[in-house]
Design a protein around this nucleic acid. Sequence first.
DNA 1: ATTTTATAGTAACAATTGTTACAGATAAAA
DNA 2: TTTTATCTGTAACAATTGTTACTATAAAAT
Lengths: 214, 214
Amino acid sequence: MISEVLDTYFPKLTTMPDLKKELVAISSIHKFEAGTVILRQGAYIKVIPLLISGLAKVFKEEPINGNEVLLYYIQPGESCVMSVTTLIRNQESQVKAVIEEDSEVVVIPADKALVIAKKYPKWNEFIYDLFNLKFEELLDVIEILTFSNKDKRLLEYLKKEAKLKGRNVLNTTHQHIAHDLGSSREVISRLLKKLEQEGHIFLKQGEIELIDLT
Amino acid sequence: MISEVLDTYFPKLTTMPDLKKELVAISSIHKFEAGTVILRQGAYIKVIPLLISGLAKVFKEEPINGNEVLLYYIQPGESCVMSVTTLIRNQESQVKAVIEEDSEVVVIPADKALVIAKKYPKWNEFIYDLFNLKFEELLDVIEILTFSNKDKRLLEYLKKEAKLKGRNVLNTTHQHIAHDLGSSREVISRLLKKLEQEGHIFLKQGEIELIDLT
DNA sequence: ATTTTATAGTAACAATTGTTACAGATAAAA
DNA sequence: TTTTATCTGTAACAATTGTTACTATAAAAT
């Protein structure tokens, strides 16, 4: 079971028979419901999660008044890179990870992941790839925060959500979006109305339909 | 020469005699003047630089109208993480690196760095550390961009510059700061004046003196 | 010493975003 | 069906940031 799942979603980790064998031996599959916090900011890493279905979001919390920003997503075939390096450095996690859609996760105990990392260069390649990917997502966020207005950021967010969730109707609230983007509900409502008037989206209570997905 | 330099600035890379020997054999020391672009956005990686003196800055360029934002710094004892992962993935660089203060750099040819990475886990530990560090710097940038105003961002920038350059008088222009932060000169002038009135800094032509460095 | 260039100051206005304070609409629960 | 809670719309105003346009100052060059 785990063997096939790894083959399908993490092919990089199964090209080496030894590595694959070891991974299968130490990992187990868990299911998490939407809303589950799988990693708390400030906590230490106990497991490395490999997502095989569903979707997770990674946030940075502002210590003072509890605001958060969405940093990036974890899709099937990915893991939480921050977990991996934080584990190696034995630090507190700087981020919070939350399951966004019901997910299945291959879970690797932290101590054993450390052994694997030292033993198999392939594992590092996998992590490097992921790191690069997430690094670039952060760069994109910074670019759009620096050079664009909120309406652009909002539209990009909606498109990304639609793409990752595989549908062009999003079931969400203005409040929820405001939370993800670190803004206020009123501002988001105003900008959504503007996007609707421009023909990008169609609004209903608890629903946003994307018109042009490009 | 290279041997001592590595011991001093990159102790992690010299704990294993074999790794150290190999690094010494393949690397050379180069000097770069302030202003030198050591990595162009869109270019492929030819060398991995290890900074031993001076300071470098890493920018993300906006493709359309040539604006840039400062992402993070490279200090002595650090390398350009983006180079490392971009090299492994054989991608175009997503960022631009510029020498900020005259620097000395240990240069490792890209092809040989790849061999080293596969052979020595210690190298990966070094890279992981660095990645984590820079990742966290990016998170801090995103946090401040999301939750704070420009004046806070500006003050943090000035403090960081002062800290990294080891002096509390910065020789820079408003235009240059605006460029680093992706804003306009007039806005920066206005905010600097405000910071001066609040007693944080003291302004002179071409100079900014930090009062409180905390 | 005078001109030229680069740098900085600032006022006035526009655009964007945040905040307050309600009202209306929709869906869920009683 | 009524009640209740949640979600959305929006006006009015405040604060912040961006833009335009011009002036003032300091440093560098002639």
